[in-house]
Amino acid sequence: MNDHDILQGPPEHLRFAAYLVELRQVADADEISLVSRVLTDPDRTMARSAVLRHLDDRAEVLHLRPAYEAWAEALTGAVSGHPLLTRRLREWSLFRAVVLELPWHPDALLAASDWLQLRTAAGPGSRAAEILAVGGRTRRIRNTAAATLKQQSRA
């Protein structure tokens, strides 16, 4: 689906596209109020999808930076009551801990979604890759983790 298709589509598609633009352009000081407003849209699935995309985009930029912690804490309040969004934010925090070698618990990683396990399996944390090579939820995750370990051992 391209931008033209979205502009010709149903009203919720138009709102989704508009929300994505607003979320990309929002000033840091206004981000939490905008996220809260988007989540009041009558089409809850569409609204959560727009916020999830924004959350992933922002976390990708911030997760290695000190600003991540304050951002995640503020966003936690805005997404409370939305289990998917709350979980994704929690998983970004776990991913951050793995990558930055901060304290984390293997059980949290093993209980995480396939999204996080696969992302972590392909990442730089050898302890996480070792855990996922054996206990990852899917064959793809286990194979990715094993390949990551193999590549790290060659380096």
Rank of each mutant, 00 (worst) to 15 (best):
D56F: 02
D30G: 06
N2V: 05
L109W: 07
N143R: 10
A50D: 05
R137G: 06
S153Y: 00
E60Y: 10
A122W: 02
R44L: 08
T144H: 02
D56C: 06
V26I: 13
G9M: 04
S80Y: 00
I32E: 04
T76E: 14
A47S: 06
R139I: 00
T138C: 11
L84M: 11
R88A: 12
G123A: 14
N143W: 13
H4W: 13
L34Q: 09
A155H: 07
L102R: 13
R87M: 10
R119W: 01
S113K: 08
L23V: 05
G9Y: 08
Y19A: 15
V21P: 00
Q25P: 01
R65W: 15
A121C: 05
R24P: 06
A147Y: 01
L64G: 12
W104P: 07
V98D: 00
V21E: 12
L116D: 08
A146Q: 14
T144A: 15
A121V: 02
A59H: 06
L23H: 01
G81S: 03
R15A: 08
K150H: 09
R37G: 02
P11V: 02
R37N: 12
E31W: 10
V38P: 00
L23Q: 06
P42L: 14
G135T: 02
Y19D: 15
A97K: 06
W71S: 04
A18N: 13
L109D: 02
P10I: 11
A74F: 03
F16W: 15
R65G: 13
H82C: 04
R90T: 10
Q152P: 01
A128T: 03
L116W: 13
A122H: 07
Y19P: 03
L102G: 03
E60P: 00
A112K: 07
G136Q: 04
L85G: 02
G9H: 04
T86P: 01
L84Q: 08
F16I: 05
L75H: 09
R37A: 11
R87K: 14
L20G: 13
S49N: 10
E12A: 08
L34I: 11
L75P: 06
V26Y: 10
P124V: 09
D5E: 09
E91F: 08
L94W: 04
V51T: 14
A146S: 14
Y19S: 10
K150A: 11
